[in-house]
Computed example of a mutant assay.
Amino acid sequence: MNASLYIITVLIWGTTWLAITFQIGDTPVVVSVGWRFAIASAALLAWLALRGKLPRLSKENHKMAVLLALCLFSNNFLCFYFATQYIPSGLNAVVFSLAPILNALNLWWLEKKRPDVSFIQGALMGFSGILMLFGAQFIHSAMDLTILLGLGVTFVGTYFFSMGNLVSARAQQKGMPLLPTTGWAMGYGALYLFAIALFMGHSLAFTTTPLYVSALAYLAIIGSVIGFNTYLALVGHIGAAKAAYCTVLFPLVALSLSTIFEGYEWTWQSVLGVMLVVGGNLRVFGLPEPVKRWYHAHR
């Protein structure tokens, strides 16, 4: 059961980055992200209502949902979608894999929870790997400055996501129901994005090509609703620390798809960069228990 949840989560999270590229084009990014979360919110809230698990939330709970909307279901994805116009989707995913490290840094900054030495070593490895990956991409693209723009924007998006994790943790500590809060947060995020789109003079209509619509449906239902639920189920079964290994593996899926569909070209610098990012995450989280057991059994 746990293995199935783990594989499903990694595959979903690893493939959504490529699906985002299919939404870049005629439809403004803010409209695309808005519809993604409008559909996801409607689907999740309807599913909860049908199961009789849609409680009436308090005003404080709705305020927390608004904060989640700003961090997890709007501004961060605006950054990710925008960055995809300038960098391969796989690199977007690799930067996002630093989110757990940013979580710990935020806890250090905001709650004075000082990380241990292994975390600092892992964080330095991870950030060094990112710099090496983008350095290789920068050189390969003949010093194209838009690569640096893409890096900066996707890092901002990852930081928004990290702050959203802290908001979610605080909401759960207060006993707020997670899935209903998430459903409302997705809805608030959609309203916020549609308001921005209308203010900018955009129509809320979106492209109706089969590729765009299928990508929208995949991102809204598979990526945002099912992927989120499988991850939560995984956290419930094996704990948040072990579930965090998803962030180690899904960038490899994203980079593999980017190689096939976007023509991402590997160099020795990019290979070393990925190894540093993965190694940094492993240094932070430690080796998985099955790997530890195998190692001790074959010493």
Rank of each mutant, 00 (worst) to 15 (best):
residue 131 L to I: 15
residue 165 N to G: 14
residue 102 L to H: 11
residue 156 V to N: 14
residue 149 L to T: 13
residue 96 F to S: 14
residue 145 L to M: 10
residue 148 L to P: 04
residue 148 L to W: 10
residue 165 N to S: 07
residue 123 A to N: 01
residue 146 T to V: 06
residue 88 P to I: 14
residue 104 A to E: 08
residue 110 L to Y: 00
residue 90 G to Q: 10
residue 119 F to D: 00
residue 127 F to P: 01
residue 105 L to W: 00
residue 97 S to Q: 08
residue 150 G to L: 09
residue 140 H to Y: 10
residue 110 L to K: 00
residue 142 A to V: 08
residue 156 V to W: 12
residue 140 H to W: 07
residue 145 L to G: 02
residue 116 D to Q: 12
residue 143 M to V: 10
residue 144 D to V: 06
residue 151 L to S: 06
residue 146 T to I: 05
residue 150 G to R: 06
residue 140 H to R: 11
residue 95 V to R: 07
residue 148 L to G: 01
residue 150 G to D: 02
residue 117 V to K: 14
residue 152 G to T: 12
residue 156 V to T: 14
residue 143 M to D: 15
residue 125 M to P: 12
residue 132 M to A: 06
residue 120 I to N: 01
residue 114 R to W: 00
residue 157 G to P: 04
residue 135 G to S: 12
residue 145 L to R: 08
residue 153 V to H: 00
residue 129 G to T: 11
residue 140 H to E: 15
residue 153 V to A: 05
residue 154 T to G: 03
residue 121 Q to C: 05
residue 159 Y to G: 02
residue 112 K to A: 09
residue 97 S to E: 11
residue 135 G to N: 12
residue 139 I to R: 15
residue 151 L to K: 11
residue 140 H to C: 01
residue 144 D to N: 15
residue 89 S to W: 11
residue 101 I to N: 03
residue 164 G to W: 03
residue 118 S to C: 07
residue 159 Y to R: 04
residue 123 A to I: 02
residue 139 I to W: 06
residue 134 F to V: 08
residue 114 R to V: 06
residue 95 V to M: 04
